[in-house]
Design a protein around this nucleic acid. Sequence first.
DNA 1: AACGCGGGGTC
DNA 2: GACCCAGCGTT
Length: 346
Amino acid sequence: MDFTDQLLHWYQKNKRDLPWRNTTNAYYIWLSEIILQQTRVEQGTPYYEAFIENFPTLKDLATANEDAVLKLWQGLGYYSRARNLHAAAKTIYFDLNNRFPEKYSDIIQLKGIGPYTAAAIASFAFKETVAVVDGNVFRVLARFFGIYEDTAVAKNRTIFQNLANELISKKEPDLFNHAIMDFGAMVCLPANPKCSTCIFNVNCVAFLRNETSILPTKNKKISIKNRYLNYLILRKNHEIVIQQRTEKDIWQQLFELPLIETPSNNEEKLFTDLSNRFPNSTIKKVTANSIKHKLSHQQLHINFYEIDIAAFAPNQQKVSLNDLHKYAYPIVIWNFLKDFFKLEKN
DNA sequence: AACGCGGGGTC
DNA sequence: GACCCAGCGTT
């Protein structure tokens, strides 16, 4: 048996039973694929369930407002996925007469859909013979065939794409794509792969050369920068001020509190500035130690300052504590608010 | 071609 | 800490 037949045989016995595999509904498959971009199945599954519950049809998603979509996405990260998902739903519903495109070349035109996601939808929903190439596929192919090219380099992607397109089952492209990803997620793991029981251990290049720890090759250098975020709880009785982020920065379109970002953790200067800005208020730092929150490229140091004010400014968006839960926040902010104000809801 | 974008899990 | 996860859009 060749690689493809062995893999399909393995899949038949070991496949995971995942909710989006019990449908050929392109909308549901698309939804699952967007949610799962750079996201583990265990983390994404509850969000998938919530989305199909709240937006059972593509029309429901297309006609929702963006804030509602973001609220449902709260905590999942990479929020542009939610905004692009919503934009693409509107495109399909309003511009394409509610017909989901059925070919890879058309699917990939939609916002938020790249080569991986287009291949996934085209094969799973429409049985098109086009191979998915994701982190799992890089790993399985690099190890089995001994491919040393750096997967972080864009042009090397075609090596893997072409190989996968040769290997894919022409009869069951959807099963092959599921199979190779399941295999990468269950056997050919990033660290400590299960080689001793692997069906390919007699002819896997990486295993035979004892190179599973260096394959696939991936040289990605990312620099982490520190940011110091000081949030103001501007409070009058049961109302506080919130605002929506807009700039090209993290957490676009999500809500937060009035923010003072400083180049370093200079508490004295911040207190001086706040005292000048709120001369008649008591300013209380409510985070004993700054909250540390790590993003992929940033280390955040977050503090909250409670300030009772006499009146809200006309340009400020005030919200009752009872309504705070209606807005989408970065999860680190929401967790703080929930705890600080003893809120129950999501 | 390189970088920015979240949050959580694993080792 | 470092790395990874059903990647994509922007520059």
